[in-house]
Design a protein around this nucleic acid. Sequence first.
RNA 1: GCGCCAGUAGCUCAGCUGGCUAGAGCACGCCCCUGAUAAGGGCGAGGUCGAAGGUUCGAGUCCUUUCUGGCGCACCA
Length: 940
Amino acid sequence: MPEYRDTLQLPATDFAMKANLSQSEPKTLQRFAEMNFYERVNSARANAPIFRFHDGPPYANGPIHVGHMVNKVLKDMVVRSRLMEGMRCPYTPGWDCHGLPIEHRVLTELSKKGKMKELDALPANERRVAIRAACASDAVKFIQVQADGMKRLLTFADYEHPYRTLDHAYEGATLELFATLVEQDIVFRERKPVHWSIANRTALAEAELEYEDREDPSIWVDFEAADREAVAKVFGVELDSTPSFMIWTTTPWTLPANLAIAIGGAYNYSLVRIDGGESIIASDMIEKVSKAIGAQKVERLAETTGDRLVGLQYKHPFCDRVGKIIAAPHVTLEDGTGLVHTAPGHGEEDWRAGRKEGLEAYCPVRDNGTYDDSVPEWLRGVSIWEANKTILEHITKSGHLVHHLMFTHSYPHDWRSKTPVIFRATEQWFIGVDRKVKNSGRTIRELASEAVESKIEFVPEWGRNRMRGMIASRPDWCLSRQRSWGLPIPAFKLADGSTFMTPASIRAVAKVMREHGSNAWFTHTPQELLAHYNSAADVDAPKDFNNATIEKLFDIFDVWFEAGSSWHSVMQERGQGFPAELYLEGSDQHRGWFQLSMLLALASTGQAPFRRLVTHGFVVDKEGKKMSKSLGNTIDVENILKEFGADVCRWWVSGLAYETDIRMDLEFLKTAGEAYRKVRNTVRFLLSNLGDLPATTDWRGALKSVEPESIDGWVLGELSGLEKNVRNAYARFDFRAAHLALYAFCNETLSSMYCVAVKDRLYCDRPDSHRRRRSQIVMRACAETLCRLLAPIMAHTADEIYRTMNAGDVSVHEQTYLNIQYQAHADWSKVMDARAAALKALEEAKAKGVENTLDAGLVMPDADGTLSKFAHDFADICGVSRATFDQSANAVQVIDLREAPRCERSRRRDESVAMRSDGGLLSDRDFDAVSVFKALHPVA
RNA sequence: GCGCCAGUAGCUCAGCUGGCUAGAGCACGCCCCUGAUAAGGGCGAGGUCGAAGGUUCGAGUCCUUUCUGGCGCACCA
């Protein structure tokens, strides 16, 4: 009996089944690097419409984590999908380089190495320069680490020319932007309390605080009302003596700075007689306070509400002034008396409350922790810790002290000196959100609200709501930090102690920084820094300006100012245009980069720096818990890239519902890997059947002549729909929809339906049969379309597919969509319904012994003759040997063909199977194919 | 504490302006194929939609409360 296997066209391809991504992807990267691919693509698109996307700068601190991966892959999918639309997509990756986390880590390391003493012995300026140098090399090191990770993710970006906030040009441009803000009258200087280390005479960040137990006096103090009658009126009683407002505090040393007493407007307050004295405290606190101070006799005289107390005045117990009662939201009835001693110069909340009331952040404490001359004489020059005792004694004598005990509580300490930290008001720079911008006459808050309301598109839409709330409630932006690692605020101190900084002087300094970088602030003299400044030409210059007597100030900018300037310092600076089409970051940036970039751009240009904001959620673990090193639930990106490959990771990202929390677990990547293999195998099947399609075939041109009622017509119609859907999904940033559509197409449309159906003709028809060539052409169209549609997601694999079909130095990433327009026959949905019914019937027939569908024939009910139009492909669609149509039948009938002769070549039980001259049982089709084969391959 | 978001089959997610027996994919079970083979195909079984109230003829879908989780309110980026 003849062996026919060799006469078949079985699938064959070099496109490997096993992707081996961890080896092949680096090779792809290498190849792209060698051909300078980023440059090549964008220069080829020099005249194409531009897609203006601006990358937010991650912080150059540690290797990339899963959050970075999600962020960068999402961005890359945006860029690559626009690239596939034929657009030019410059993408400048950036890094945020300055800031406390780096400075703190560097200091910690120096401290560990025992180099702190050495460092502290240096003059202040040299010390700063030394720290800055260490920080810079730390930042640069991590930029490299992160860039390598991002490249490995197959992101398409200009890694040769990234932006870094420590670059000279960036620093200069940022200062120039600052100059325009100063010009707009929204920058001002004001006192604000910060954590202060007396030992190191420096401001500290939260990260530099260590909380330790400390024993402090806990005191209850009576502040005598200034106007007895006013109080009497509020409580509706007659008064013989003047009552007091009773406060509680654990920091007696802040009493000299007391400017107000805060109450809760909604609480009730009582006038009580405690052991003879009359005091006002919150009604709900009477019992607690009585107990705490050990009162013998407590009598409630009258009650009123907090809001009625507002505006009353009291005499400071030992400073010669009156303070007033104010309402503040931070007052609680947890501890104390319900009346809160308020010293705006010594507490964040006090400051905020005081600011609302127009109180200054009065701070009589000098940087060395002693009082200045604004306090009563007996306190001048006294250290605040000493003052705790002194004040206690004083108010005991004066009778203001109600009660006192020692109290152990958790208190912040300086991480280096281990000494207690205080809150101390110092001069800070601010951008006022409620100050009128000169150009528009409107405040930044107004401009931002308007932009959020109507100028910006949010994806997802709820981002608008979130940002609206944040804009409405945000405080003024405190720009200055008392730190080393950052961009200096180019302000000087004049001989008379006032501050000097004008738009022109800032621009002059910027010029120096463009050349020498921000280190110049520390290494250059004021005269050198102002070399380009001409006070005579500066209308804002102070009278009799003399640069010989000025000194530098050493505040630096909040790093957000630098990051928030990127639309200017990168996009405008590099001529990339403004505003950007899109910013895409995590939803935390509604408060961060998005908002601050917007504020700066609105203030200086009147326009938001982006038209659209896309946000993604945060990566959390399997249980929905935040990922953190301490929980040990973090996932190392380097490892997963090694284990799964970038394309698998990218496939995972593409399938995410990214707008909300993103759950992550290695299991999910395994699943993504399975899906990847399914897609890969399906495409591989297409490729493996294209081997003998002549290279000269005009497959694109041939598509329009594909018969609409053929199975190829059907799949071409589906392909056309897929292309539209996926492109549309990409346009909406709905990668998940693209992902699902692509997956469904590969699995259902192709693998389960089409590929199975056309196998027989591909393998068994004579090579050049019309229907075989037609299938090959359509399969080619499918593969060509799929690799383009997949390109934004599986950047490597799509290219691999494309290059399997197209020779030469080519890449799918410089192609554009085929834009397939094809309409299959409208009755295909009916055929598919009939197929489903047939498959069910075949499943039932298994019980009767017809287990292999090729042992079956079908008789299909076809009342209106619809199905018979598709007769030529129907048996193949159902995987059976034969199918006939019966207009009078009303149910699918399965014919048992196990006794019918079987073609030894195609294994089908076709009617035409017969014994042939060579001794084989063959159908007509197979006999013909064998004849052709023999003619082409004469036996040697 | 306040603002925004999420909670639907074992897992990842759809369910638009309230309306037929709540849908996919993965995993799972049974079966076929062995000429996509460290592949491929068919069929199937899985859910009181976080909880409790309420509005309505009718709620996963609207309202209230509550629980769980995420992001933001800092000299953290």
